[in-house]
Design a protein around this nucleic acid. Sequence first.
DNA 1: GCCCATCATGCAAACGATTGCTGCAACTGT
DNA 2: ACAGTTGCAGCAATCGTTTGCATGATGGGC
Lengths: 337, 337
Amino acid sequence: MSVTIRDVAHKANVSVSTVSRALSAPNLVRQQTRDRVIAAADELGYRPNTAARSLITGKTGILGIVVTDLGNPFYTGILKGVQARARQDAYSVLFADGEEDPATEESLVRTMAKQVDGLVVCAPTMSDQQLRDLAELTPMVLVNRHVPEIPAVLMDSAGGMRQVVDHLAALGHERIAYLGGPRGAWSDQERRAGLLAAAERQHIGVAEFGPFPPRFDGGIQGADLALAAEVTAIVAYNDLMAFGTLSRLRSRGVRVPTDVSVVGFDDLVFSATSAPPLTTVAMPTEAAGRAAVHLLLARLAESGAGAPATAQRLDTYLIVRFTTSPPGAPVSVSAHH
Amino acid sequence: MSVTIRDVAHKANVSVSTVSRALSAPNLVRQQTRDRVIAAADELGYRPNTAARSLITGKTGILGIVVTDLGNPFYTGILKGVQARARQDAYSVLFADGEEDPATEESLVRTMAKQVDGLVVCAPTMSDQQLRDLAELTPMVLVNRHVPEIPAVLMDSAGGMRQVVDHLAALGHERIAYLGGPRGAWSDQERRAGLLAAAERQHIGVAEFGPFPPRFDGGIQGADLALAAEVTAIVAYNDLMAFGTLSRLRSRGVRVPTDVSVVGFDDLVFSATSAPPLTTVAMPTEAAGRAAVHLLLARLAESGAGAPATAQRLDTYLIVRFTTSPPGAPVSVSAHH
DNA sequence: GCCCATCATGCAAACGATTGCTGCAACTGT
DNA sequence: ACAGTTGCAGCAATCGTTTGCATGATGGGC
């Protein structure tokens, strides 16, 4: 059927062990035989059987990634980065979608654990304890989730929020609203904390709202609340919500950014082309994917569980577009009719 | 280290063969022993070693999917469907991104072919011949690409375009523009052909433009061209372009849909929330992913290469929102100042 | 009470690679 | 010329399953 190492050995007039070594530990065989083997191998189109190999080595050459919800464009960047970096080291990547359900996530991880050399798990909805248990099963690195014992790469949302607040402060805003996302999410906690801390430092007042569903409609709901709170700027948990806010503001006759500034978070593809283009914070998703794999590979290489669980932080960047400006008159909806 | 079938056998006081059979061919062992085995198995937390299994069976329990560009939200739907359906049958899925490069795509497929039981390839940019060669390596089904010898699931873009034209005709439009996508793409050929055929049948005039890059800026460029052609409706190759068109129209003071109707294609998440919400054609991406896996699995089961290469067509649906209406005055830009 | 189906179970041979150990040759230094 | 070293190649065990074949037990029909 398929061409095996034995065929190559026969063709090159050597034993199978020699073939094996010629291909994976080049300096253990004489140059001359090695060339002969290699010639035979690719003349026959030999590709080692990965199942046989991993049976004995215990390594599969496969990495796994599980995300909470692929529907969210945010994750596709990570996925891209993971795959690109993995490919660099000739790893394949198994993919699974947790569908925002902790139970599904856990079962997915358990299944995968058997088939992969390591796993990257994105912003899981599971508990810390579940995560710790799972981490026993296979080398694992987290993305945008922090559990002390597990290595992770985190995107510095707090830092992003600091930039947002500094930007707003520089513009002269003195009272802003924060439209929060799901309380459970690590991201929301980070963003909220970052915003609050920076606001205090800058002596800016914050009206907090939420939690809202982190989607378009959440932003609509939040917009009304924020308007009533007489703020000059609205910071949304993410771009999706910011779009909802923008939409609601327009339909209520509030001009952006003249009457009120709006800022999002994530820098989705559409953020550059919304009307008006949205000021937001760019997350280095692809870089995070790469970094996660890099970290994972490093751990695999040293293979000692001895290394401490490092958490790597990636910088985020504020992208100023056209939804922020110095505040005009205090927001008063009735004034615009 | 890890718990093997031998451990289970020992604990249940049977031979390894019995354990193997109890777990995979239940009716070959007595009910009573079977229960005993199963009890022992999950008490020990036994998970069969997939490498060992596939070494002997030749099956890996893994399916592969390669997409042209994960950045395009269109593919994530397919990916989701693929993964969900695969999971139903306890298959895992290997994922790879071709980065819109035929060479990368090919190398990816070749690598994967060794490790998977079957492959679904989405809208590949490779040539028919390359695809045929690759199809020799492993069972394969195409999505949104037609090659006679290879089974495929196609989304009926032509049918969608027919619905668009019928809708526009019913509204009273008599002259429309088509903003084309990349000429090479199967999708563009289908959409263009569907639109042209339906237009002829309805006695509607069509001004064709393009090819444009299938993105926001392509739509901007196209908008200007279409306006100059004095049409009452603009049909874009996809939603991304339609957004660009919408944006350009607004900034030129052309009202949508009063002055000109706009329709997109794909029904992205954002299409429902654009301003105004976009009339577009929904592609059953997730269903397509499921269907592709279903087809693949069916082929694997019958395992005979005898079956003909069926091509399955999935219906698309026009979603009428707020960018289409009966035509007002013929488009004349200067009239709006 | 005997023989023949029938059913449940065990034995052992694969599957295709990797790798520790062994053996042989050639070479070095004295 | 001989012992010791080194370098290269082969033998065979091993990884954890599945599965064809053989065997033992059970039961039913006569």
